[in-house]
Amino acid sequence: MTTKKITRLAMLLSLGLILSYLESMLPLNFSVPGIKIGLANMVTMLVLYNYGVKDSSVILLLRVVLSGLIFTGLNTILFGIVGGAFCIAAMSVGKKLNCFSVIGVSVIGAFFHNIGQLVAAFIVMQNSNIIYYFPYLAIAGAVSGFLVGYVSAFLIKRFQNI
């Protein structure tokens, strides 16, 4: 790992943290808890495409833990880790399949992130009623995943030449 790469990944990690923070400040109040845009997923996508699965998993884990400690509180770390693990696993498989574009991979990531969060919520609350959230989360995830993927495609393209 060269110094250049370390520096870049560190900067991308900070960018992800800023995006997490920005998103937590946005006054978007949906009636269903758990719906969010997933701005920070842009960074995960960027690292996934330009550096690979391993680096992006590390960046994702660090971002979730750090943003949990700094901004959102400890109990969101568990949700973030389970959701993030589902998300990165699904995205790397989706990327390998070669039949999806950046946008498709982002939609897959959003969908599996939601599934991961529901699994985490089920583990924590031991209540199967949590499944009622699934349709709302899945639709919101498809929309936000599409938008985030669209922006990520531009980002990945631009960052490649740097």
Partner: peptide, 9 residues
């Protein structure tokens, strides 16, 4: 081709 919407998407 990774940047544009594909049929798979």
């Amino acid at each position: 081709s990774d940047y544009n919407l594909k049929k798979g998407d």
